[in-house]
Design a protein around this nucleic acid. Sequence first.
DNA 1: GATGTTCTATGTGATTTTGTTATAGGCTGA
DNA 2: TCAGCCTATAACAAAATCACATAGAACATC
Lengths: 308, 308
Amino acid sequence: MIRFRQIEAFRCLMSCGTTVAAARRMHITQPAISRLIADLEDDLGFRLFNRAKGRLEPTTAAIRFQRAVEENFLGLERLRQAAETIRAEENEGLAIACMPVLSTSLLPQILNEFFKLRPDVPVRIDTVGNAEVTVKLQDLKVDVAISLAFPAIAGIEVEPLLEADVLCALPAGHPLAERDFITPQDLANETVIGWMPNYPLSQNQEQKYFGHAGVYPRYNIRTHTSHTRYAMVANGFGVSIVEPFASDFWETQGVVTRPFLTPAKHEYVIAYPSSGSRSAILQDFRLATLRVVNDPALVPWGRALTQE
Amino acid sequence: MIRFRQIEAFRCLMSCGTTVAAARRMHITQPAISRLIADLEDDLGFRLFNRAKGRLEPTTAAIRFQRAVEENFLGLERLRQAAETIRAEENEGLAIACMPVLSTSLLPQILNEFFKLRPDVPVRIDTVGNAEVTVKLQDLKVDVAISLAFPAIAGIEVEPLLEADVLCALPAGHPLAERDFITPQDLANETVIGWMPNYPLSQNQEQKYFGHAGVYPRYNIRTHTSHTRYAMVANGFGVSIVEPFASDFWETQGVVTRPFLTPAKHEYVIAYPSSGSRSAILQDFRLATLRVVNDPALVPWGRALTQE
DNA sequence: GATGTTCTATGTGATTTTGTTATAGGCTGA
DNA sequence: TCAGCCTATAACAAAATCACATAGAACATC
């Protein structure tokens, strides 16, 4: 029966050339190599090396066999390294991926609820952009994510959470701030803080908000993070379309928000890696999230899409 | 130190689900699996399975680790199979790849010479088309090949052997058989046995023989094997352009050959896999080949391109 | 609630693998 | 001829691997 140790010795011998060198590299003695190779030849049923002039010379069979080996093995060393990263990243408790806006607004409320159920569970929060959220989930680097909805992706399970109002953010004192609501036409001559074009996993936002109305405002700054967009408005660079999560906070910084009339939706979801069964901790986190989302006192500007 | 056996057990356990099933598949007992996994967890430094309700449930770390494993290993079983084919194909002696025409003409002469040097070496002849010759060499399935010249290919070493006359093959009794030589223009109104279009490693033969003269004969049958072309001519399906190796043989079958005036060449080579040093047997085969090629009595219709 | 089934974990001892040291012999170049 | 390479084998030690025996936990069924 062919054994792994023989393959290791063979690989090493083929690349080193001599048993002595191979032994040195594998940190064992030369006779060990010698016998492993002899055993391998017995098991394979053909010669791997011609013993010529006291040296080992690979046969053509050895070269062909080596190809098969290299196609099938990359060695334990790589696995050791992979284990290293996994161990380094592993932690007790719950790892949550979350978009920047939510991590300063919705997430604290959820955690508040969560800690009532699990006071002692340590939590890690990975604040990343919308596109990276799915990567974190697929790579199993987080246990759960709260995020803007994204297209279906293999390996990720999604549960709708809530639909949030679409708001127009204006600098305090802006003429439009007098209105009760804003329409796309109102912004036809305004400078708008825009979105990154061709951003993965999200459609063209500008198209989404203004395309249907035939309005094409002027864009000066483009960004995909909601907080940045609020900040640009606060500094008077223009107006923008935002979600409502951070509106309270930015109101104190001189940003006024008004409902924006558009068929576009802001839908948010809770997502899990579909592998691995859900732990009890994770169930509790989900519970906490649903409670927050369904509590009108906590989330007055959204409609929950799911019940406890 | 992480060991291969642990990885095998881990792979099996992940796909089987229980230690009992994994043990059955690996033809060992359940405690052996149990211990291998426990050891692996120790070595890795993190848990791979949660012991819940008397069952093993993979952790997310296990799933991540499994990905690393599957990327790096495909198992010893595949190697065993690869060894199987290598052993089956392996033989003592010399393996030669050769095109069909040569295997009935030039090769017997070479072997005649070769056996004077090595009477006891068993020889295998792999008669394959021009395109397959290079594959056989690259896969180390043969030690040497005699073939029509082909473009340079990595892993193959080529040595020019000889340049053969280009002949026109005619059915006996054909009007053109009266001539001493044939020109492309002579064939303008003839039906010609043609070549496979777009055949790998060889240019368009029809273009090569007739293109420069602006002659476009009619083609009815197309084939890449010289013998087949001779046979079609012998049966009166048309005329063709051939190499001279088999002309003597087909003369007895009613095929007349005449020199064909064209700048095109028929160049033949001897080729070896560039890996692996050349054995003494192979050196003798090369010697025999050169002797044949350089002997005007044996090869009257070609010019040798190399000396002993 | 007793019972049988199915699963995992551990202790013990036999077997196999893997490794070391010691030793011998071949080739090569100074 | 001799030192410096190399490979191969024998004898023994250490470690890995395995089977067997056994025990405990979960769960379904009667």
